[in-house]
Structure formats: C-alpha cells, structure tokens
C-alpha cells in the first residue's frame, strides 16, 4: 500500500500534538512565573543568586553533582523527603524561576540538597566533606574532590586562615596545608545558598 504522504502527515501530527500539550501549553501556563512577596516577612521570593553562589552553580554543573543529588522535595505522604529533613515543604515551580539550568536531578545516590544550606550551614564541614567525604561521612560513596583544593607549603610557619582543619589520618605532610581553590569556595557558597525555606502559599 502506498500512503506515503498520509503516513507522513500522521507522523507529523503525533509529535506536534505532544509538543503542544507538554511544552506549548505549559509555556503559557507557567513559562513566565514571577517572584512573589512573602506575606509574613515581606521579602521577595525567590531572589536570583548572586556573585559567588552563581559561579558555584556552574562548578556544581560541570562536576556533575546532579548525577547523585536531586534538588526537589516530594510532597508529604509521597516518599519520605520531608521526614528525612530534606525540606520543610514540597518544592514548587516558583523555587526554580531563576535557576539555569534547573537542576532537579533524577538520582539520589546521595541525599537531596534542596535545603542543604539550612541543614548543614557550616562552611568548614562542607570543605572537609568535599575534600574527602570519608572525613565527615565514613562509608560514603561520594567521590573526594581533592582537585578543588590546593596543597601548599606553610609560609613563614603561619597556617593560613582558610586552611582545612583535618583529622590526623587525612592531614598533609608536615609543613604543608590544604586550602580551597576558588572553585571550592564558590561551590560551598552555592551549597549554602540552597535554602528553599520561604513559606509559599502554593506549597502547602
């Protein structure tokens, strides 16, 4: 049978339909979502990430943290995301309007990071953890990110202010110290900026 053009039309219409339904309509529905003013605090939410945190997002992107960490909290009663302390509420579209790329993630080899800035506010903890996760979380299968740090000789016998305070079995040789490179600093600034605590009405 020879229905070449007809088949072609069908092929075209099928994909066109889902493109309209799954992309075009949502584009009109929430493609231009705006920030809102939170009633209780009067602040505008969300805020675009600035400076260091923004650079940190790109470190997060290029190192592929997304392949082990999600950034989306499922609603109460669906999974145990909230019970595990990964968020105080479910995530909603408005949380992401300034993110590019949107790093929802599909894998939880490691915990969700939606509110890691609130859950783990210690900069030092993050530096040690990134340098070698075994320091803070023995048995973790998160890879060490030593290449985000620099090992250098201690100058004039004075340890730098930002040198990592490491347990003995992870410490460098005598006379050396380990300091975060600017990528590591940016990455930690980004992690600390992840909060998603604003009580949005639509997230209740």
């Amino acid at each position: 049978m020879n229905f070449g053009p007809l088949i072609f039309l069908g092929i075209f219409l099928s994909l066109a339909s889902s493109w309209c339904g799954l992309i075009l309509i949502p584009l009109f529905q929430f493609g231009k979502m705006e920030p809102v003013t939170i009633e209780m605090t009067g602040e505008i939410y969300p805020q675009p990430k600035g400076g260091e945190a923004k650079q940190g997002m790109s470190v997060y992107r290029s190192n592929g943290c997304i392949y082990c960490h999600s950034q989306q909290v499922r609603p109460r009663g669906f999974g145990a995301d909230i019970e595990r302390g990964w968020g105080s509420r479910r995530s909603v579209g408005r949380d992401y309007i300034y993110d590019n790329p949107v790093l929802l993630g599909t894998m939880r080899t490691g915990p969700d990071l939606t509110n890691i800035g609130q859950r783990q506010p210690s900069e030092d903890w993050h530096f040690s953890h990134l340098y070698d996760p075994q320091i803070t979380s023995p048995g973790s299968n998160m890879p060490p990110y030593r290449f985000l740090f620099e090992t250098r000789p201690i100058r004039n016998g004075v340890v730098s202010e930002n040198a990592l305070k490491l347990p003995a079995n992870f410490a460098p040789e005598d006379g050396f110290e380990i300091v975060p490179k600017k990528e590591a600093k940016a990455l930690v600034a980004y992690l600390l900026s992840l909060q998603a605590t604003a009580p949005l009405p639509e997230a209740r």
């Binding site: 799954l22 929430f30 992401y96 590019n100």
Partner: peptide, 12 residues
C-alpha cells in the same frame, strides 16, 4: 526557557 519548564522540555 525559565524554571521547571526546562524539566518538562528535558524529559519530553
């Protein structure tokens, strides 16, 4: 595109 629409396009 903006926001979670990216995820929709991504998985489409």
């Amino acid at each position: 595109v903006h926001g979670t629409l990216q995820a929709a396009v991504n998985w489409w």
